[in-house]
Design a protein around this nucleic acid. Sequence first.
RNA 1: GGAGGUUUGGCAGAGUUGGUCGAUUGCACCGGUCUUGAAAACCGGCGUGCCGAAAGGUACCGGGGGUUCGAAUCCCUCAGCCUCCGCCA
Length: 424
Amino acid sequence: MLTLQCLREERERVLASLAKRHIDAETTVDRILALDAQRRALQTELDQVLAESNTLSREIGGLMRDGKKEEAEAVKAQTAGLKDKSHALKESMDVAEEELQHMLVQLPNTPCDLVAAGKSADDNVEVYRNSEPPKAGGHAKPHWDIASEFDLIDFDLGAKVTGAGFPFYKGKGAKLQRGLIRFFLERADEAGYTEYIPPHVVNADSGYGTGQLPDKEGQMYHMQDDDLYMIPTAEVPLTNIYRDVVLNASDLPQKLCGYTPCFRREAGSYGKDVRGLNRLHQFDKVEIVQIAHPSESYATLDTMVEHVKGLLEALELPFRILRLCGGDMGFTSAMTYDFEVWSAAQERWLEVSSVSNFETFQANRLKCRFKDVDGKNKFVHTLNGSALALPRIVAALLENHQDHEGVTIPKALVPYVGFDRIEA
RNA sequence: GGAGGUUUGGCAGAGUUGGUCGAUUGCACCGGUCUUGAAAACCGGCGUGCCGAAAGGUACCGGGGGUUCGAAUCCCUCAGCCUCCGCCA
């Protein structure tokens, strides 16, 4: 979430920045500032009452020790009204604080300067494309047909055993998954990311820390009996490693990665968006995360973009990179690059990675700071990116590398999957 | 799942008949003296949030709540960790 200090000192900039998301936050921000002023005034008053109370209590303590019981009783009488007074002040302060927090967590992050204003995906800025989308040959089969023809993925079986959006991967389909995961992890390892196998289930504090709660409450599977959430991305457990942590400046950057299945309820999705592998309730993903020094974070973002770019090049897929506009960016992000691969049969771009800098937005919630050279604790910047999400990569591999007899596995991937062709 | 124990500042570890305890001490760490440099020794500093220009005030001894003029110390509750028993991959 945004810091109060930032709202206080840079109100105009924050409003202008949020306007790029097509959000008019003026009313909210001003209400927050009013509550903040109110809270501070109450705190000052409360502190005074408590100070008085503490002084008297110490006095009583001294008198009791000296055996002057009657004098102590007399002082005690002076404390009579103080407790009610402090309780009342505390209560008003808590009320103001609660409303303030409630409003504050609903404000999204401020897009950074480079981000364009915009309402929807149409306003995203394409910053890179490795090739023109191959012309439709008319014969390209969609991945769900290929998957079925070579018995790679069974959607119906998944629907029977669990429900729609939970496919079974089979035979070479399963090996392809396993190979891709290994391939992505090895590349992350080579790039200096430490591998983690995190829990696939997190508590509410963690959901809150990375911003899934309360914003996306309905998107996560929730286990009511234990009040735990299934992770929608490894970002949640990996970034929450740093919740309530103060790092040394020399510890930065922290680079970590991890493979996990991801679980998303995807309420409200329908149609061609959910066909085949396009959108699943459970999917596999390798995530890269960095905890960076504020002055380095945008350079870090660039290296992460380059990393993902390298993966897609190795897989020989046509792709483009978009810098998302304000209106299309996630709630917590200050800047996001989306990677999209071309689907030859569906003849459209499919998002396969999202690489973001959250600046201090998550760090503020996580209370993740570093001790700066001036001795002060400051918020770190957090970043993460998919490197990569599997289903649409598999879709693109099947569709783009198909021919009449089967599918050719890109050379870089062969050592990981153990075969170079998928055929009948 | 049952029984008991435990949870203090980066770590270790005092403090529980409630009263200058936000907290003794050691280690680690930072600065200084000494030294060609280092080590040792000695001196000083050394948790975090909030309010405040500052001085200072206030809050925090696992989380939350309560008793009291006053709680790290008493009570309730939740959680983590440890030991034993049970069950089990």
